[in-house]
Design a protein around this nucleic acid. Structure first.
Lengths: 210, 210, 210, 210
DNA sequence: GATGAATGAGATTTCATTCAT
DNA sequence: TATGAATGAAATCTCATTCAT
C-alpha cells in the first residue's frame, strides 16, 4: 500500500514511448500549467517528435485524462483496501490522509497536476471527472457512516459532509505545499497527517460535552 | 454585516458603464468560464461596445482581478469586524461561515467566479492573489490562536492548520453547490453553516478524552 | 445585361476591405487553387492583416462561398431575364452562352475559380451548391421545354438532357481555356458562342431527316 | 469491347496485395474523396498494413495516377478500336458513349473517382493528366473530322469543338448520376446513350435547313 | 514482402489587444 | 466616452511519408 505501487522502481532507460510521453507530460504540466503547456513542450521534454504524442493520444486533453485516471484509480483502490481492514475509523482516515500525502512526497509533480489541473479545476477539465472524484468522497463517507452506525463517530454531521471536510482539509494542505504558502518537508508531511485527523476527528473545542 | 453591503439595493437602469461591465463579466465568466469567455462576450452581455471594456480595464485579467478584489476585501473586512466582537471563537467561526454562505446565496455567480476562477485556480490566475487569499487564512488563524491562548480551543493543531481545515471545508461545500454535486437550497445553506462549525470545532469522535 | 453589372467600373483605390479581400481571394484562388491557397495568401494579396479575413468571413470556405453565390445569382438572374424576352429559343441559348463567355472574358480569374473550385468540384466544395447549380440547368431546361412545346425544338431528347448537354459544352470550352488546352482570344470567344449553339441546336448530322 | 476487359472475372480471394490496394483505393476515394481520404483509410479498406501502400506506390498520388491511367488507357484503346471499324461516324460516337456509360454501370466507384478526382479536377490532380485526357478528345475529333471530310457530318463546327461538346455531354450526365442529381438505372443508362448521340448529332432544331 | 511506430511540416482559426475616428 | 475595424501571435491537430525491424 505504498503510494508507488504503479511506478517503475528504478526508471531505467525508458523504452516505452507512451510512458515516456506521460512522464514528460507530468513535468511539463507541473512546470507550465496545463493551459500554458504546448504539446510541443511535452514532446520536447520526452525527446520525441511532435506527432508521436498524437499517435498515442487523441489530444492534449487525453494525456491529462490518462494521467489523472491512472492515479485516481489507484487512490480509489487504496481507500477500498484500507476500508476493508479491521481498523478503527480514525485509523482508516489517518491511512487515507497518509497515502495521499505520501503520494505527494513521492511524486509532487504528478500530485500537483492532478490537484491543480483536475481536482481543483472542476470548471474546465475536472468537469469530466466529477463523477470519478465523487467516488472518493463516497468511499470516505462510507467509512464515516459505518463509524457513526457503530457509535465510534458522533452523528452530529452527515457522512457526506464529514467526507467533504476531511478531503477539503487534505486538499488545502497540498495546495499550500504546491504553491509554497506552507512550509514543506519530512516533518511537515508527518505533522500534516496527524493534524488532519486530529482536526476532523478531535475537533477544536477544548470542552467536549457529549 | 449582510453580504450585500456593496451591492446596489434596487438595481435601477444602470448608468455606470464600468459597473455594467463588471456585472456582465460575472454572468459571462460564471456561464462560460474565464478562459472560454471572450472579451466580446462580456461586452455583449453588458450591451456595450467591444472596446469599452478596454477603456475601463487594462485587460480581461484586470476585470477578474477587480471582481475578486472588490469582494475579497469585503470578506477580509467582515472577518476583522467579526473578530472585533466579544464572541466565543466558535461563534466567530460560525459568523464567518455564515457570511460566506450568505454571499453565495445572494450572488451565486459572483461566488462561483471567485472560487472557481481565482481561489481554486491558484496556478493560473489565483497566483497573483495568493497573498490576498492568505490574509483571510491569517485572520482566521488569529481567531483560533487567541482561542487556544485563552483555553477555549485545544492546542492539538496549529492555528494555521485549523484555519486551513476550516476554509477548506467551506470551499468544498461551495464547490459542491457550484458544480451541482451537492443539493442546495435554503435548508442546505443553513445546515452547512452548522455542520462546518460542528465538524471543525466539535470533531467527529464520539469519545472526547481531554 | 453585360457581365460586369455587379463590378465597379473603374476600381479606384479600394476602401471597402471586405471587397478587397474578396477580390484578392479571386486572384489567390485562381493562382494557387483553393486548397493550396492559404488564408495568409489572400490577406497578403489584399494587403490586410491575417485576422481581418476572419473578421469578415467565418472561414476560408465562406470566402469561396460568397464569391460563387455573388456571381451565380447574377447568372440565374440573367438567364431569367433572357428567357423573359421575346426571342427564339436558339437566340436565348446563344445569349446565355454569350453571357457566360463574356463573363470569362471580363474576369477570367473569377470564372476560373467558380468553375474549377465549385462547379466542377462537386465532390468537395460544390456539394453545398449543387442545388444552386441545378437551378441554372432548370432554367435552361425550361427554355428548351417551351421551345419543344411550340414546335421550335424537336422532342427527340428531354429538356433536362438538352440543358445538360448545352451547359456541358460551355463548361468544357471554358475548361479548355482555363487550362490552356484550347487557344483563346477575341476570335475564339466569338467563335465559341456560335459553335456551342450550332452544335447543340444544329447538330452534327449533314442529312437532317425530320 | 466490354467495359470489364481489364477486371478479373470472378474476383477470387485476392492474393495480389497491389491489386487489393488499388481496389480498396477505389472504394476509399469514392467514399471520402481523394483529399479527405487518408492513406490509412486505403490500407484499412484493403486490410493491409499502413506501410504496404508505400511498398507498392511511391505516394498517395501515384495510387490515383495508376487507377486513372489503367482505365483511361483502356478507353483510348477502345476508342481507337471503334474508330477502326467500318461504321458510320454517328455509330462510332454511339459506341463510345455506350462504352463509357457501361463502364460506369459496371464500376460506378471507379468512374466516380476518375471523373471527380481526375477529369473534372484538372486544377489539382488532373493537371498531370491533361495530355492524356486530350488524347481522348483528339481521337473523337478525328472521327468527326473524317466524317466531315466524307460529307457525313456538317462542317459548321470544328472537329475539336464537336469533340468537346460530345465529351462534355457525357461527363455532365455521369456527374449527374454520381451526385444523384439525375435519376439512374438501366433505363436511364440506355436512354442516355441515345440522347447523347441524338443531341450532338441530330441537334435540337426542328427545322434543319441544310 | 509486411508492419506500424515515428517524424515534423504546415494550415486554420481564435481572440486579446490596439487604435483611428 | 464610445465604437468596432484591424492586427497578428500562437497553438492544436492532421497526415503523408520514412524507416527500423
Amino acid at each position: 500500500m505504498t503510494p508507488s505501487r504503479d511506478v517503475e522502481p528504478a526508471k531505467p532507460v525508458q523504452l516505452d514511448k507512451r510512458r515516456m510521453i506521460l512522464d514528460a507530460a507530468v513535468v511539463a504540466f507541473a512546470t507550465r500549467g496545463f493551459h500554458a503547456c504546448r504539446v510541443s513542450d511535452i514532446a520536447d521534454e520526452a525527446n520525441v517528435a511532435y506527432g508521436l504524442v498524437y499517435h498515442y493520444f487523441r489530444s492534449k486533453d487525453e494525456v491529462l485524462d490518462t494521467l489523472f485516471l491512472e492515479r485516481w484509480d489507484v487512490l480509489l483502490e487504496v481507500i477500498a483496501e484500507i476500508d476493508a481492514q479491521p481498523l478503527p475509523a480514525r485509523e482508516k482516515l489517518r491511512a487515507i490522509a497518509s497515502f495521499i500525502i505520501e503520494s505527494y512526497r513521492h511524486d509532487p509533480d504528478l500530485m500537483k497536476v492532478i490537484i491543480v489541473e483536475v481536482t481543483r479545476a472542476a470548471n474546465s477539465f475536472g468537469r469530466t471527472h466529477l463523477a470519478k472524484i465523487r467516488e472518493a468522497y463516497a468511499l470516505i463517507a462510507d467509512i464515516v457512516g459505518k463509524a457513526q452506525a457503530d457509535g465510534t463517530f458522533r452523528t452530529a454531521v452527515t457522512p457526506t459532509f464529514a467526507a467533504l471536510a476531511f478531503y477539503g482539509a487534505i486538499e488545502q494542505v497540498l495546495t499550500g505545499w504546491i504553491f509554497d504558502t506552507l512550509p514543506q518537508g519530512e516533518a511537515e508531511f508527518d505533522q500534516a497527517k496527524a493534524f488532519i485527523v486530529e482536526t476532523i476527528c478531535g475537533g477544536l473545542d477544548a470542552a467536549a460535552v457529549r
